[in-house]
C-alpha cells in the first residue's frame, strides 16, 4: 500500500543530494508543480533531472535550475522562448545537458521500467545525436543502440488515485506519467482526488498500484472569480 502523505513537503522529504529524479509533464500539462516546489524547498542538490523540457518561466523546474540544484538534465527540448534560467545556466557551463530525441527519451524510460537492457532504434541514425553510439543495420535500415534510463525518484501528476495507489490521468496531462512511474525506485504522485479503493473502474486504470509508493492530494486550484465568470 502506498504512503498517503499529508503534505507535498512530507512526500518528497526522502530525496537526497545527487539523486536522479524524473519529473513528469509536457509544458504545464501533467507537471507536478507543487511537488517540484517542495523539492525546491527541501534543499536536495546535485540532482540529475529527467524531463521533456528544461523548465519554463519562473516556476517549478526552472527555479530548481535557477538555484543551481540541477547538475545534469536529460531532456529533448530545453530551448524555449521562456527557458531563460536553463539558457543562463547552460551558457555559464553550470548544467550538463544530455539531449535525447523525444521518442527515444520515452522509450529509454519505458525500457528501464520494463527491465529491458536497451534497444536499437532508427531514430537519430546518421545524426549528431548518435555519434559514438553502437549502430547496427537491421532489415536494411540503420539503427542506434540506446540504453535504459533508471531513476531514484519519479515525481508525477495524475488526476485521481484510489487508496491502493491505482491512477487515472486526464487528457494530455498523461504524457510521461505512466512510464516514469515504472522506471523509478520510488514514485511520488500528486493527484487532485483520492478515492476509496474499489471506486476506480479496474478497466480504466492506467497506472496499476504496483508502481506507486507515495500519494499526496493537491486539490486543483479554485478558479478565480474572473475565470469563473469567463466560464459561465
Amino acid at each position: 500500500m502506498p504512503i498517503i502523505a499529508s503534505t507535498v513537503a512530507e512526500a518528497v522529504a526522502g530525496i537526497r543530494d545527487n539523486s536522479t529524479v524524473m519529473i513528469g509533464g509536457f509544458g504545464n500539462a501533467g507537471q507536478p508543480m507543487e511537488l517540484i516546489d517542495a523539492l525546491l524547498g527541501g534543499g536536495a542538490t546535485g540532482l540529475t533531472v529527467v524531463n521533456n523540457n528544461a523548465g519554463q518561466g519562473d516556476a517549478g523546474l526552472a527555479l530548481l535550475i535557477k538555484e543551481r540544484r540541477v547538475a545534469k538534465i536529460i531532456c529533448s527540448f530545453p530551448r524555449q522562448s521562456d527557458s531563460w534560467h536553463f539558457d543562463a545556466a547552460y551558457r555559464a557551463g553550470e548544467i550538463e545537458l544530455e539531449l535525447v530525441p523525444q521518442g527515444t527519451l520515452a522509450e529509454r524510460i519505458r525500457a528501464a521500467g520494463a527491465g529491458i537492457g536497451g534497444f536499437f532504434t532508427p531514430t537519430g541514425y546518421g545524426t549528431l545525436l548518435s555519434e559514438g553510439k553502437e549502430t547496427r543495420v537491421i532489415d536494411g535500415r540503420g539503427h542506434v543502440y540506446e540504453t535504459p534510463i533508471h531513476a531514484d525518484y519519479a515525481l508525477i501528476k495524475a488526476h485521481t488515485a484510489d487508496r491502493a495507489g491505482n491512477l487515472i490521468y486526464r487528457k494530455t496531462a498523461r504524457n510521461f506519467g505512466p512510464i516514469m512511474a515504472t522506471a523509478a525506485s520510488i514514485t511520488i504522485v500528486q493527484v487532485s482526488n483520492i478515492v476509496a479503493t474499489g471506486d476506480l473502474d479496474p478497466e480504466v486504470i492506467v497506472t496499476p498500484c504496483i508502481y506507486v509508493n507515495t500519494i499526496v492530494r493537491v486539490p486543483a486550484p479554485t478558479p478565480t472569480l474572473a475565470e469563473y465568470e469567463v466560464n459561465q
Binding site: 527540448f77 530545453p78 530551448r79 535525447v100 523525444q102 541514425y125 545525436l129
Partner: peptide
C-alpha cells in the same frame, strides 16, 4: 553558441 533542442523531430522524420 546555439542551444540545441530536438523534441520529436527526429522521431517524426524517421517514423
Amino acid at each position: 553558441d546555439a542551444i540545441p533542442a530536438v523534441g520529436g523531430a527526429m522521431d517524426l522524420a524517421t517514423g
